[in-house]
Nucleic acid binder design. Structure first.
Lengths: 253, 253
DNA sequence: TATCATTTGTTCGTATGTATC
DNA sequence: CGATACATACGAACAAATGAT
């Protein structure tokens, strides 16, 4: 049982508590959360408070409610959506990131969810490097996280050290890894209460998440995750027009 | 005053009503919406119902609430966020869209919000072509909309007719427009209640929105908007690794 | 500075509807 | 059919921020 104190809204505290229990594995994917009535009893709060907390989890993609059945922990928290819409981008221009406002924090975790799926290394261990960044002009914050699987650390010793995102490619090629490809995935979801505070999101609204995966000959080497408030950030891609429209003037669908 | 019947949840009906009044101009950007108490009185519903409705508008980016002041209509509904994060994509692969499941609907509106800003033609008139698409495998729905400003219609007569997105580039080059560039913008926000039904979103969660702008020599010609449920769709971009890392091995930040 | 009315934010408790098993 | 669980709706009270008096 976790203590519930005053200043932070009680619905947020309940949501935090459930989030911790889910990420800690107390409730495993597919499990049913306690029913609303049970939580009302155990947390000693009203139904509205519990409903608000659960709806935050659902908005964040951690759980799924269904009338008559219950609220179930999502099979893979923040997993990848089923339908992949591939876009056709081309031109290169330096991927500029705003400056860091904190020292990088290095830790180690087990790969789960989207990062695990994209790195094809679910349940494997990885080094994660967290660094908060902020655009001086607009104040927009970006939570930057790099996942480096242990297999990559073995091949590229420097990879586990915090470095500028632009310098990573150089390190990989210096380590002899060839034919590097980069794929970027974009998705969005509602923020968890603690993500909202970390990103300094005053208003409501979802967060944009991009995963940039660097692979060598089809083997994923590392993954860089970018979380920003969708309300303050616009992702922009330069795209090539379909190559030289020679003769194929396709008709309407 | 709009009639409020039963089957659709009352909070959704109130949200729909407010959305119509905002888009119709009854409440202009910057205006305060009626206070919760006033709406409770005028709609004859409870405070909770009004709060739910208003929170939907806020999540969709149409309005902004502030304690002690009121709820204000956002300066530009679904406007562009301030901070632009430019990514560095490269490789081309055909931008595949799932098949259409409805006949295209053509209408005409005034450009506002993000589309108006991106086309640099706010408050100008444009032809809009709506077409719902659906992926057969996953059932993911995509609301596809093309904005063709009247200025472009004048130069490219066929542009105002529904056609396959891939064929548009051909039409533009056939009309003599040169050095075409394509820029794609990605953002996300909470869905309006009617968008949620249109996209068949059962669960909660935000929608991903991409704007693909085609320009000729810096002049925006048209804009294609794509709205999908973020829970079911993953946007994917192929990106070029920074060109030939010759010697510049940048150190950490 | 202090007070007050207004407005949104939070929390409570209850009742009813509806899907699931 | 009944039990369970979430969804909707109601009404009340107090807290906290705001702006004017």
């Amino acid at each position: 049982m976790t203590m519930i104190s005053r200043p932070r809204p009680m619905w947020a505290q309940v949501a935090d508590h459930l989030t911790r229990e889910i990420t800690a594995g107390t409730y495993r994917p597919g499990d049913l959360l306690p029913s609303e009535r049970e939580m009302v009893a155990s947390f000693r709060v009203s139904t509205g408070t519990v409903r608000r907390a659960v709806s935050e989890l659902v908005a964040a993609g951690l759980a799924e409610s269904q009338q008559g059945k219950g609220t179930r922990v999502k099979s893979t928290p923040s997993a990848l959506p089923g339908y992949a819409l591939e876009r056709a981008p081309r031109r290169r221009s330096d991927a500029t990131l705003p400056p860091a406002i904190e020292a990088p924090a290095v830790s180690r975790t087990t790969l789960t969810g989207a990062a695990g799926a994209l790195l094809q290394a679910a349940d494997h261990d990885a080094v994660v490097i967290d660094q908060m960044r902020q655009d001086p002009q607009t104040g927009a914050r970006i939570a930057h996280r790099t996942y480096v699987p242990m297999a990559t650390v073995a091949d590229v010793p420097n990879a586990a050290e915090p470095m500028d995102p632009d310098a990573i490619m150089d390190q990989l090629t210096a380590a002899g890894l060839q034919s590097l490809t980069v794929t970027e995935h974009v998705t969005a979801r509602g923020p968890l209460p603690d993500e909202r505070t970390a990103l300094g999101m005053d208003a409501a609204g979802p967060i944009l998440i991009t995963y940039r995966v660097i692979s060598s000959k089809g083997r994923p080497l590392m993954c860089m995750e970018l979380k920003t408030s969708a309300a303050t950030t616009l992702l922009t891609y330069q795209v090539t027009p379909p190559k030289a429209p020679s003769g194929r003037t396709r008709a309407s669908a």
